[in-house]
Write a protein that binds this DNA or RNA. Structure first.
Lengths: 241, 241
DNA sequence: GCCCGCATCATCCCTTTGGTGGATACCGGC
DNA sequence: GCCGGTATCCACCAAAGGGATGATGCGGGC
């Protein structure tokens, strides 16, 4: 079953290009690009100059403490946000988030760029600086705010069509309904039934029903086999001809 | 996480190229290329002119009845085998395998090409003909036997290094031991714990222990999340730099 | 010799998943 | 109006997976 590999390699490639761009335009200690929202079924994170386990730690312990966490900006149209604009130096230095998470990584300044689809934040580009690099200046923030619409455009004009194409491929090959494709995509993202139910606003029972149908149609017996198989399908575009 | 996608797209690409080659050299109704053995952790099948569910049916019901099934040739050095050389016409036509499986697909002649690694068959290229195309001639079989070593060479000189590279990538990124990589690869192939235990000659308990360690090191909580994450890792080669 | 990492297996316990058989509701076509 | 497909949910059960802990053996370094 595996594995596939899809030829172009999106969204990772887009994430890497974006990080390269901002990293070339302004000095950064490290950076990261997260795909998070419900529209970004192919979640993932690309990090620059950060050990991989930082992401785990953040997700597990520090996401809720993050003064710039996306949840705080859900119903706004904020596109670029900067830690130094939200907290005074005293507040930041005293915060658990800084002491426990930022300080050990030698981070002092943070700016985040958000990408949305219908108000939902679907991606976050985070930029980090050690104290030695100085704060993000107003000119730099203005530059980021100028940059954001273009990155946003690229994201939605290349990622979303790709996702549609993949849905169509899998849907046609295995005769899956729309809802079944929703579930299948989340399986590919590694989600549990509970997570799928939460994400799609369903009961776990419904998720299981859809999954049963998908298993039947695709001809597998477990979620793991399903994701391996579907990845294979996406990799070999002309399996049947 | 997904997804990953790896840039080159092996082994599917190799399988497709091989099928194109034999399909261009001799007339075929349909064909298929299976990666099967323990060395081919990235299993998969590519089919030409065959509906996808044929593979499921074969695996579930007819593999054991196949007069050319790889198990029969395990300890030989047979490289190309032909149904008409093994069974008389009367035997074939009377067989359940022909009546139940081949006939509905309008297949009359079959030839298989095997690929090995240390006696183990790790891949099978199967070629199928309707009666109208006539049997595989001795000249055609000789051609296939000439072709086999070259395909074999390509398989082992491009697939096996790729697998080593992927093992190294994942091993270094997450500090996995050799044995942990073995089980991780099988997770990516969609295997259950029982299947992994069987394949590696371990008890299920040991598999679970290795998996626990892998989960910890990679920072996930389930096999599904693991495979999504690892596929992402393989897709983004320069995540950390 | 001792310790540590690795690999192997076991036992218990709990959660998740998979399988079956329903039920309700909406919608669209014949 | 009925029927079939889709989508939603429920209950129940069995199987598999996940987590904790501990035990054994083996090999390599200090």
């Amino acid at each position: 079953m595996l594995h596939h590999s899809i030829s172009e390699n999106f969204p990772n490639h887009f994430q890497r290009e974006s990080l390269d761009l901002v990293g070339n335009l302004l000095p950064l200690s490290s950076s990261g690009f997260y795909l998070v929202g419900p529209d970004m079924r192919h979640r993932g994170v690309v990090l620059r100059n950060l050990p991989a386990q930082v992401e785990q730690e953040y997700t597990r312990h520090y996401r809720e403490l993050d003064p710039l966490r996306p949840a705080l900006f859900e119903r706004t149209d904020t596109r670029v946000v900067c830690m130094d604009e939200r907290l005074t130096e005293a507040e930041l230095l005293a915060s658990e988030y800084y002491q426990q998470f930022m300080l050990p990584l030698n981070h002092r300044h943070v700016a985040d760029m958000f990408f949305r689809s219908d108000d939902d934040i679907i991606a976050v580009l985070t930029m980090l600086r050690a104290a030695s690099l100085g704060p993000f200046t107003p000119a730099e923030l203005a530059l980021l705010r100028t940059l954001q619409p273009f990155l946003d455009f690229t994201l939605s004009s290349v990622y979303l069509p790709r996702r549609r194409r993949e849905r169509a491929t899998l849907g046609q090959r295995h005769d899956l309904t729309d809802r079944e494709l929703d579930v299948a995509e989340l399986i590919l993202a590694g989600a549990s039934n509970k997570a799928i139910a939460l994400e799609l606003g369903l009961s776990v029972a419904t998720v299981k029903t859809h999954l049963q149908h998908v298993f039947r149609k695709v001809g597998v017996a477990s979620r793991t086999a399903l994701s391996a198989r579907l990845l294979g399908d996406l990799g070999s575009r002309n399996t049947e001809r």
